[in-house]
């Protein structure tokens, strides 16, 4: 009867997510889900699968493309394997800090780049952040000389290995879950990440000095299956777009709270925070940033617009 029909009408939006429920991105997704369910009178139900139970981010993207899943949060390195221009969004020392990236996202600096994945059957519908990354090891890192001979774990990508080498250390790609034991066993001397990951993985137990190098701002994108989006009626689609864009602000705010929370835990754990000479590191990485910015007209445009934002900030606007 009526109830069955109602049930049939409910469409489940399955969301793959690789972090725990406490992560800012989860909070934003859950908030989006609640609002979207309400706005569509229960025609949609959002179901989030946290902790990467459905697979790592690369494979999850394939599931988005086939339509096994409808939504996922993935780092920009994922669309980068489809279009190399995406590297510019997460290029070393492109931004001075997290706020600059957030301004760029609000101003739609990446929008034209985002549309380039449509032909692979997934759309980028929003942008989240997992923060600025900094170096942690067994001593303060103020200048590039401090990193001499230091093996620091980086994400598995040539750009990041090169970045760490330019910063004065040796970049070692390794799975996140292996870092703790590797530092403990002196395979590597440290890692680089946000305060939140540094806290979650208990890396401060083996690397008690956290130096603010600000070398990267990590951006994640929310991707959606295209067929799923195309089947929505125009009004629903409008609501979807509006709410998923709004969730970006929710995420940015939740991330700030995550950072504050992590910092207070880390302080209690006796972590030493160090201000680094970011200018010295930035100068060393400049050729790398330039080579990424020069990849195409699209990357150049993104680069130029970020430089405009920087100039505006410096002029105090």
């Amino acid at each position: 009867g009526v109830i069955n029909e109602e049930e049939e009408k409910t469409q489940i939006i399955r969301v793959a997510f690789n972090q725990p429920e406490t992560h800012a991105e989860y909070i934003a997704l859950a908030d989006f889900g609640e609002k979207f369910e309400k706005a569509t009178d229960g025609r949609y139900e959002v179901q989030i699968y946290p902790n990467a139970v459905l697979g790592d981010q690369g494979p999850v993207t394939e599931m988005i493309r086939t339509g096994a899943l409808q939504l996922a949060v993935v780092p920009v390195s994922v669309p980068e394997s489809y279009n190399e221009d995406f590297a510019i969004i997460a290029a070393p020392y492109l931004y001075d800090d997290l706020e600059q990236m957030e301004t760029a996202a609000r101003e739609g600096v990446f929008d034209s780049l985002f549309t380039t994945t449509d032909k692979f059957n997934f759309e980028i519908v929003s942008l989240y952040t997992s923060g600025a990354r900094h170096i942690y090891t067994d001593k303060p890192v103020v200048t590039p000389e401090d990193l001499k001979g230091y093996k620091i774990r980086v994400q598995d990508s040539e750009v990041y290995i090169q970045m760490m080498n330019m910063m004065g250390g040796v970049g070692i790609p390794m799975a996140q879950s292996e870092v703790y034991a590797a530092v403990q066993q002196h395979v590597i001397e440290g890692g680089e990440n946000s305060e939140v990951v540094y806290d979650n993985f208990k890396h401060y137990e083996v690397s008690p000095y956290f130096s603010y190098t600000n070398h990267l701002v990590m951006t994640d994108v929310v991707i959606a299956n295209r067929d799923f989006l195309d089947k929505m009626d125009p009004e629903t689609r409008r609501i979807f777009d509006e709410l998923i864009k709004e969730s970006m602000e929710v995420e940015f705010a939740a991330w700030d709270e995550n950072i504050e929370h992590a910092k207070s835990t880390l302080e209690k754990q006796g972590v030493t925070f160090v201000e680094s000479d970011t200018e010295a590191f930035r100068d060393r990485c400049a050729p790398l940033l330039e080579s990424i910015a020069g990849r195409s007209d699209m990357t150049r445009e993104v680069y130029d617009r970020i430089m405009e934002i920087k100039a505006r900030e410096e002029n105090g606007e």
């Binding site: 725990p20 406490t22 902790n51 996140q176 879950s177 292996e178 703790y180 034991a181 403990q184 066993q185 979650n200 993985f201 208990k202 137990e205 083996v206």
Partner: peptide
């Protein structure tokens, strides 16, 4: 130890020391 399974657990559990 060392145990990869424990490292995986500590990341999901949130506030558990690997050591």
């Amino acid at each position: 130890p060392p145990s990869n399974l424990m490292i995986v657990y500590s990341t999901v559990a949130g506030s558990v020391s690997v050591a």
